[in-house]
């Protein structure tokens, strides 16, 4: 198909656009639906796409071909800061971790400096985890005894 490419005023149908970027119309429409490409001008039947859409699609196509996930592409397009990379651990550095023993088989390892938690926040976390574990166990015990209502609902809220 021979589609003339005109400057900013270009108005392509979804079919023409998909031929230009060499992607199935369904994929083009899906990228619009999930916000990787701007919505077209006009309603569904008279939808028209311009060079802006073309450029966005070419960028998304390039990034998917290089292995980026759609979620990551969305973040990049929306200018969200990249997730904080875990700091490389220097050989010889010493880490101090708390091991919270929740129950047999469950242990929570907390390294407050890497997690960026204050001592108060760590205490809240520990109280919350222990309360949740208790709720889960209590539910199970209640369920073991027919006739007793299971204790449902949200876990006890940790204070502080």
């Amino acid at each position: 198909m021979n589609i003339p490419i005109t400057p900013d005023t270009a108005a392509y149908s979804i079919h023409e656009l998909s031929v230009l970027v060499d992607l199935p119309p369904r994929t083009v429409r899906y990228y619009v639906q999930i916000g990787l490409v701007d919505h077209p001008e006009g309603g569904t039947r008279a939808a028209k796409y311009g060079t802006r859409h073309l450029e966005q699609l070419l960028l998304v196509r390039k990034w998917t071909a290089s292995g980026l996930s759609l979620e990551r592409i969305r973040e990049l397009l929306h200018g969200e800061p990249p997730p904080v990379e875990a700091r490389a651990r220097v050989a010889g550095s010493v880490e101090v971790c708390s091991h919270l023993h929740v129950s047999d088989g469950i242990e929570v390892v907390i390294e407050p400096s890497r997690a960026g938690l204050s001592p108060e926040q760590v205490r809240r976390l520990i109280r919350g985890v222990m309360a949740l574990m208790k709720t889960i166990r209590d539910d199970e015990v209640a369920a073991d005894k027919p006739g007793r209502e299971p204790q449902g609902g949200a876990p006890d809220q940790a204070e502080g």
């Binding site: 994929t27 899906y30 998917t64 071909a65 292995g67 996930s69 759609l70």
Partner: peptide
């Protein structure tokens, strides 16, 4: 792995 490149899926099939 990458479901689109390695798995051959279309984005809406993920």
């Amino acid at each position: 792995g990458n479901p689109i490149i390695d798995g051959g899926l279309a984005p809406h099939q993920l």
